[in-house]
Amino acid sequence: MTEYERSRTMSAPPEHVFEQAAAVDQLDTWLPDDLHVTAGDLPAVTVHEDRTDEDTSALLRARREQMRLEWGTRDQGGYAGWLQVAGIGSGASEVTLHLSFFDDGHDPGEQTVGDALDTSLRRLEEQVRLRVGHEAG
């Protein structure tokens, strides 16, 4: 099993960050560009990966009371992940993304995964900034 994790501080209350991250219809705004999530009967979702042009059955659970998202493949058990939002005071949050690959065949490698995690956190921060700015204006 291989695990990867990245964190980023965001200038927004944790509730705002979590609501943006957990909006199933807006996951494409912060996930890597080549991943697209279609909600079924939640927690069931389908993840389409452009790189392989494959659909994968997965589960996505939002644990609002813990400000945590959890996901993973449903049938083959190749990977799982979570996103955790924590308030760090002064209206800021720390967001941590974690991925676990249980099968080396699903692991695209440290550089690829690290870049994807960093990009996803940056894109989520931008979406939060847009949302908070829209609500304030």
Rank of each mutant, 00 (worst) to 15 (best):
T2A: 13
R8N: 04
S11W: 07
P14F: 11
H16S: 14
V17P: 03
Q20A: 15
A21S: 11
D25H: 13
Q26G: 07
Q26P: 00
L27N: 05
D28R: 14
T29C: 10
W30A: 00
L31K: 11
H36S: 12
A39N: 04
A39L: 02
D41E: 14
L42Q: 09
T46F: 03
H48Q: 07
E49S: 15
E49Y: 14
R51N: 08
R51Q: 08
T52I: 12
E54M: 11
E54I: 04
D55C: 09
T56F: 13
A58V: 00
A58R: 02
A58S: 12
L60W: 13
A62C: 06
R64A: 15
Q66A: 14
E70K: 05
E70Y: 06
D75I: 10
G77C: 03
G77T: 01
A80G: 12
W82K: 08
V85A: 09
G87M: 02
G89S: 07
G89M: 06
G91D: 04
G91L: 05
G91Q: 02
S93K: 08
V95P: 00
V95L: 07
F102G: 01
H106T: 02
D107N: 13
G109Q: 05
Q111K: 08
D115N: 11
D118V: 05
S120A: 15
L121P: 09
L121D: 13
E125A: 15
E126S: 13
E126A: 15
Q127V: 15
V128C: 00
R129G: 03
E135H: 09
